[in-house]
Design a protein around this nucleic acid. Sequence first.
DNA 1: TGAAATGTTGGGGCG
DNA 2: ACGCCCCAACATTTC
Length: 486
Amino acid sequence: MSTAPTLLWFRQDLRLEDNPALSAAAARGGVVVAVYIWDPEGEGSWAPGAASRWWLHHSLTALDAALRRAGSRLLVRSGASERVLGELLAATGADAVYWNRRYEPAAIARDAAIKSGLKARGVDARSFNASLLFEPTGVKNRQGGPFQVFTPYWRHCLSLEVERPAAAARPDWMPVSRLPVADALESLGLLPTLDWAAAFGRTWVPGEDGARKALEAFVAARVDTYATDRDFPSLGASSRLSAALHFGEIGPRQIWERLRARNEETGVFPASVGESRFLAEVGWREFAYHLLFHFPRTPEAPLRGEYAAFPWADDPEGKLLRAWRRGRTGYPIVDAGMRELWTTGWMHNRVRMIVASFLVKHLRLPWQEGARWFWDTLVDADLASNTLGWQWSAGCGADAAPYFRIFNPVLQGEKFDAEGRYVKTWIPELARLPASCIHRPWEADPGTLASAGVELGRTYPRPIVDHVRARQAALAALQALKERPS
DNA sequence: TGAAATGTTGGGGCG
DNA sequence: ACGCCCCAACATTTC
């Protein structure tokens, strides 16, 4: 008796290498049917945003192309995951569904229901870990609870065994002639109707091949200087792997293995502060999933509950929020970051911290507004990392920057973009200003501004808030929160 | 993975 | 020669 087909349900693991669900499906022996289900309703209030959908479209296209080369296709459908899986089981004669786990609250609830429903019908339903070095359930502090501070968390993780990438799998993919008819990828409507994402295609190569090349390029040219260069946004020192990691075009075990193999001869690993630092950034991603799993309400609510009553500023017509979103705050380093985000779907990490601090402290607008904007505009939008990042910036999360730690956007610009190269890249109207005043054009003398073609209030805005007063107001708001009668 | 305010120290100008 | 003061440089504290 021959083995029935297996449905391999792709979600945020859009790769064929290091794919434990795929390896297990291949080991079953029957043919494997690759399936992707577009099910935004199943994501709670966090359906992929516009930039993520752009990436997803192209990543699915790449996965489909890889499967075509193997004589099959990616079977694409949209609708409720459980219903679609049921239909595909019937249409293909499959008796098993394998997938790699997700860890977002809505996905956990949905997947658990699907798994028990399938099992009740006698379907072999199994899930695997493809996307984390350390699953949240497997890491506990001495008291048996979740870690809430990164350094002890990561130290503990580094004492644990890291699994090797999954074995390569060459399954018998179900041939195109036997596949049910798939929906066209275009029918999912993932691409924007207006082509605001034009620059995305010049910036990114979604898909497993692109991810592999990005890792190789980073390891070859960047990782050794990563520890020092990573803070300077004009140096291009980032790995730029965040979106590939989010969509699972590459897995953290592959990254780990790549660096381990790099030091095979010496046996010393990690071998440099650059490698350690880069792995620690992978560790922050792990920590973000750890926190999201154990504190599932944090995408909406501060982990430190007292911050729910923070006295945010009034912005009745949304003018402040709009200026921030569009990169028109009058602070060049902030505006450059917001424009890089809008143009490319990505922002350098140092600059993410600066713009987040500015929104939450200088404008005193709720961090949730920033998280939502990032969610819609980042190609790497990831519920765990986004939530951690914003709660960190707002001072209301685990191991967060204290609220009183307020970035001075001028000093941050002068420290990390001394020549103004980053600012000039994203704010061309300031490109002719000398470095000495690029981060504070409002202090430049009229002649300098004129010869640079800058007219404050017209070609580039004046600061929408005064730094000193905004800082004082932020500290006063924190004080008000502390003194609030409880 | 801050910044600003405040405190301390020590060199040098100067009466 | 000496004490006083200024202030830059650095350290510490506070937000």
